[in-house]
Simulated assay, not measured.
Amino acid sequence: MSKKQPAPNLRIKRQSLPETLAESLRERILNGEFKEGESLIQETIATEYGVSRMPVREAFKELEASGLITTQIHKGSVVKSIPLEQIAELFDLRALLEPELLERSLPNMTDAHFAATKQLLPQLEAAYLDDDIAQWGKLNWLFHESLYAAADRVQTLAIVQGINIQTDRYIRLQLLLTAGKKEAEVDHRELLKLCESGDVKKAVQFLRKHIQRAGADLVTLLKKKCDKEIQA
C-alpha cells in the first residue's frame, strides 16, 4: 500500500513555516523586543510559537544570513550589535550602490513603474503619520526598490536590501527621536519628482546626498545616545 501523501495546501504551509517564523522574529528584533546581545534560545522560541525546533533552526539561519543574529561560542544565537563605524560603512555602501541602481533604472522606467511607486509613497507617509513603526522599514524599502527595479541588477539589489534590513532598527530609532519622519517625506517626494522629470543626473545626486545625510545624522544620534548611557 502506497503511503498517503500530504495535501498540497498542507505541504505549502509546512515549507513556509521557517519564513513565517523568520519574519516574526525579524520584526521583534527590529522593534527592540529582543535587545542587542540577547541570546535567542531555540527551545524557548519553539515553545512560544508552538512548533518544533527544526523550523526555528531554519529561521535562525535566515536571520543570520541577513545580519540580524550571529552565533557565538557558549551563547548560541545572539542578536547582533553593529558598531558605529560599521553602521557608517553600511551607509557608505548604500551611497555607492543605490545611486548606481537608480542611474541604471531610470532610463528603463515606464509609466507602470512610476504608478507603482506613486501607490507606495502615500502608504509610507500614512505609516509615518500613524506611528506604525512596523511598516516604516518595509514600506521605505519597497519605495526605494520600486525605483531601482528597472535596473535589472538582481545581485546588487539583493545586497542593498540586506544592508537596509541591517540598518532598519537604527533608522527606526532615529525617526522616533528626531524630526526625521518629516525630512524623509520631503526627500522622498523630491526624489520622485526628479525621477519623473527624467533628469537622471540630478536624481542620482539627490539620492546620494539623501543617504549620506541620513547616515551622518544617525551616527551622530547613536553616538550621543551611547555617550549618555556611559555617563549614566
Rank of each mutant, 00 (worst) to 15 (best):
E185K: 04
S197T: 13
I69G: 09
F34D: 09
A22V: 02
F206M: 00
L17Q: 11
R189K: 15
L97W: 06
N31R: 07
S39N: 12
I82R: 04
L173M: 09
A127V: 06
S16F: 04
T178W: 06
S66K: 07
A149M: 14
L84A: 09
P99G: 00
G50C: 04
F34N: 07
D131G: 08
E89F: 07
P55Q: 03
L68G: 05
I230G: 06
D132H: 13
A59V: 01
E58L: 08
L173I: 14
I41C: 09
L21Q: 06
N140P: 05
Q72S: 13
K193C: 02
L120C: 06
R28Y: 03
F34V: 06
E185I: 01
N164A: 14
K4G: 07
I171P: 01
A22I: 02
L176N: 15
C226L: 15
L139P: 03
K202E: 03
D217F: 03
V200Q: 11
P122A: 05
R53W: 00
E33H: 08
D199P: 00
E125L: 12
R94A: 08
A112T: 07
F143I: 09
L218C: 02
L157M: 15
E85Y: 13
N9Y: 12
D131R: 14
K228R: 11
H144E: 14
L173F: 09
T20Y: 08
S39H: 06
Q155D: 14
A115I: 04
K80S: 10
D131W: 14
A150G: 08
E145A: 13
H144P: 05
T71K: 14
Q212L: 10
G37D: 01
I159V: 15
T47M: 03
A112I: 03
Q174M: 14
G32Y: 03
G180M: 02
I163Q: 02
E43R: 08
P99T: 02
I12M: 12
Q205H: 11
R104H: 10
A151Y: 07
Q212C: 01
S16H: 10
R14K: 15
F114N: 01
